[in-house]
Simulated scan of single mutants.
Amino acid sequence: MAAYEEETGITLELPGVSSRHAASRNYTDEDLTDDVQVVAPVSDTSAAIKNLTEERDTLQNKLDICGEQHTAVSDRSAAKTADLEATMKNLTEERDTLQGLLDVFEVRHQQGWVLFQNSFYYISSDTKSWQDSKADCVQKGADLVIINSKEEQNFLRKFKKRVWIGLKETEGVWKWVDGTQLSISFWIPGEPNNNNFEGKDEDCGEIRSYDQEDGWNDTPCDMQRNWICEQAL
Results as ranks from 00 to 15, higher is better:
K168N: 03
I207L: 13
T11M: 11
E213C: 02
D34G: 10
V36Y: 04
Q99W: 05
A232N: 05
I207G: 03
A232T: 13
Y210V: 08
G9D: 10
Q139R: 15
Y121G: 01
A78K: 08
L144R: 03
T11N: 06
G9W: 07
K160H: 07
K168R: 14
S124P: 03
N118L: 04
N195G: 12
K80H: 07
A232I: 05
W174S: 00
K175A: 11
T219V: 15
E54A: 11
M223K: 14
H21M: 07
T33P: 00
A23I: 04
H70C: 02
T219L: 11
V177M: 07
Q117R: 11
E202C: 06
I10G: 10
E213G: 01
D203Q: 09
N195I: 00
D83L: 14
E94K: 08
I10M: 10
E202H: 01
Y4F: 15
M88P: 00
S24G: 08
S149T: 15
I207F: 01
S24H: 12
V104P: 00
L144F: 04
G172T: 05
L32E: 05
R157E: 10
I123N: 01
Q231W: 04
P192S: 08
D214F: 10
Q99A: 15
M88L: 15
A79G: 06
A23D: 10
L12N: 00
R95A: 07
V42R: 03
T170I: 12
N154R: 08
M88S: 13
Q60L: 07
G179M: 12
G205D: 02
D75T: 14
E198I: 02
Y4W: 15
D103S: 14
D31R: 05
W216A: 01
K168I: 06
T8E: 06
K128F: 10
F159Q: 11
L52Y: 08
K175Y: 02
Q212N: 08
L91H: 06
H109L: 09
L32H: 09
R108V: 02
D57R: 14
F155E: 04
S74C: 03
G190R: 02
T180F: 05
R225S: 01
A232L: 05
N118R: 12
S119N: 02
W174Y: 09
V39C: 04
T33Y: 12
I49P: 00
L144I: 04
Q231N: 09
I146Q: 12
T28K: 11
F120M: 07
I165K: 10
A82P: 09
A2E: 13
W216H: 04
L84R: 15
S46V: 13
P15W: 06
D35P: 01
Q110F: 08
D75K: 12
N196V: 02
P41E: 09
T92F: 09
T11D: 01
E206F: 07
F105H: 04
R20L: 05
G112W: 03
I184Y: 00
I49D: 00
A86I: 01
Q212C: 01
N26G: 00
T81S: 15
D136N: 14
Q37H: 13
R76W: 08
C221F: 02
H109G: 13
Q131V: 09
E230I: 08
I10P: 03
K80R: 12
V177E: 03
L91Q: 11
L63V: 12
D57S: 12
D103M: 12
